[in-house]
Simulated assay, not measured.
Amino acid sequence: MVEQLILTAGAARAAVAPALGGALTSWTIDGRPMLRTASAEAIAAGDPLGMASFPLVPFSNRIADARFDWAGETHAIAPNFAPEPHAIHGIGWTSDWTVQEARDDRAVLVLDHHGDARWPFAFAAEQQVELTADTLTVTLTARNLEAFDAPLACGHHPYFPAAGARLHFAAERRWPPDARMLPSEPVEIADRKVDFAVAERALDCAFSGWDGVASISWPDAALRIESEVDHAVVYTPAGAPHFCFEPVAHLPNALSVVVAPGATHRATLRLIAQAVSVGA
């Protein structure tokens, strides 16, 4: 059986699975899912794509053909999203995290990476999960353990219930994907507003110049999303019971966050329930 840490605060409950990529498997308030709840089958199979949310480190989204150049050297890393040839979402989501602290309303997980075929550079990551009666906060921090500047970024990949959902946020431009699911030319958003019913628009698209705030409304609940990063990926697969709004630090296929030796990068995901009407 997969170990899960159960956090509680008032009527709120969250569960974290350290061995499954340090992923959240659920977050509910009065029994109402605020994130997609991982199924028993997804947990048993160890499928990170079936979780409620998972951490993105040391990069988010895709690296084209699982290859990149850094400091005059070409690095080939393991593709991990067949049948695509790319590497995706870093390595945190497929790693076994260690529990450093576990309390009723807080858990701290750590991951030490020494460099391997999945990612060549060493780093140490820490994920703090904190729960209150109305807020779930996940703070992901990564420290560069190399003696040189290295690409290193944090982000989050939460899944939300799609039924009746409306998404709203502000950003400067969107980056539609090309046929290889990599960003094409950017499109300026004239009024900076992105506001749509999730069921009416199928997207898999990056946005830059995000102001760090988004909101989701359902007929029976509302949620505010906050983060200090300035990019986001929106994934609203047609007909699916879930969708994603992913706060990230860079565009797909762009290792643009560079961290000095011993320095850190951080990304916080704060989810604030503003209204929940159970049974409505």
Score class of each variant (00 low, 15 high):
37 T>L: 10
237 P>K: 02
242 H>L: 14
14 A>Q: 04
271 L>V: 06
172 E>T: 13
38 A>K: 01
266 R>V: 14
112 D>W: 02
22 G>R: 01
145 L>A: 12
43 I>R: 08
239 G>L: 11
52 A>F: 04
204 D>M: 09
188 E>M: 13
193 K>I: 15
139 T>L: 12
6 I>L: 14
97 W>V: 05
52 A>H: 03
174 R>Y: 08
40 A>Y: 08
25 T>F: 07
180 R>A: 15
72 G>P: 00
190 A>S: 13
197 A>T: 13
263 A>Q: 13
280 A>G: 11
86 H>W: 02
223 L>S: 01
115 G>D: 05
106 R>K: 12
171 A>V: 00
252 P>R: 00
212 G>P: 01
67 R>L: 10
105 D>M: 07
125 A>Q: 03
252 P>Y: 03
166 R>S: 12
186 P>L: 10
169 F>I: 05
36 R>A: 14
231 H>M: 02
258 V>W: 02
53 S>A: 15
88 I>Q: 04
142 A>E: 02
43 I>V: 14
239 G>P: 03
265 H>L: 07
209 G>S: 10
257 V>H: 06
264 T>W: 04
166 R>W: 06
100 Q>Y: 12
135 T>S: 11
187 V>P: 01
263 A>C: 11
89 H>W: 07
241 P>T: 04
26 S>F: 08
187 V>Q: 12
122 A>Q: 05
235 Y>I: 03
18 P>K: 09
201 R>C: 06
4 Q>H: 11
100 Q>D: 15
70 W>V: 07
237 P>L: 01
121 F>D: 10
280 A>F: 10
42 A>C: 06
138 V>L: 14
185 E>C: 09
8 T>R: 12
150 A>D: 03
231 H>Q: 11
240 A>R: 09
72 G>M: 09
